[in-house]
Amino acid sequence: MNTPQARTQFAVQSRILHWLMAVMILAMLFIGVTMVASLGDYHMLLAIHRPLGILILILTVIRFINRICTKLPPFPPTMSRQERFVASSSEKLLYALMFAQPLVGWSMLSAGHYPIVMFGPVHLPPILPAIPILYSVLRKAHTILAYLLFVTFLAHLSAVLFHTLIIRDRLLDRMALWPTRSRKNKS
């Protein structure tokens, strides 16, 4: 942890979790929005959607523990206090959504009297009693949270692109899985 990279980059497991979950969550959002509009692919997409959602929930728990236990690299000096506040808040929002969305999905299926099938004979127990109106509310919440997650993702991506292409402060290097020029070499 005393290498120069440790101070400018997130811990390696943090970076791996970030990119793994980025791909999974983006795939999940596209699967979700596609399946609700699809007659022919609905069944196949739903069969992926359920276990993938639970996998994301498990990874979110691991990532949250990791987030508490690891030191973060400092914000680049190019970020103002307000910008740092927005970045921290959006991080909290993303964590909250990553937790809430799979849990709402699981609760919704429980309230809707559905079996929560993962794969093969493996299925999860219901976490709520079967109550019609609860199902209805949670089903709507699942949609709203999905849109909120998608918009938050777009805002996050926009901010990173802005820093990378306009300010060019190498913000993205903090999360890079690929080799980066260290700040030392640059200056």
């Binding site: 699809s38 007659l39 609905y42 069944h43 809707g112 019609p132 199902y135 089903r139």
Partner: peptide, 20 residues
């Protein structure tokens, strides 16, 4: 059979609407 997915998808919409 393509109708199985069709039934699943359509039943789900009917279910979601009526439960609310």
């Amino acid at each position: 059979d393509p109708l199985l997915s069709v039934r699943s998808a359509a039943y789900s919409v009917s279910f979601t609407r009526r439960e609310g």
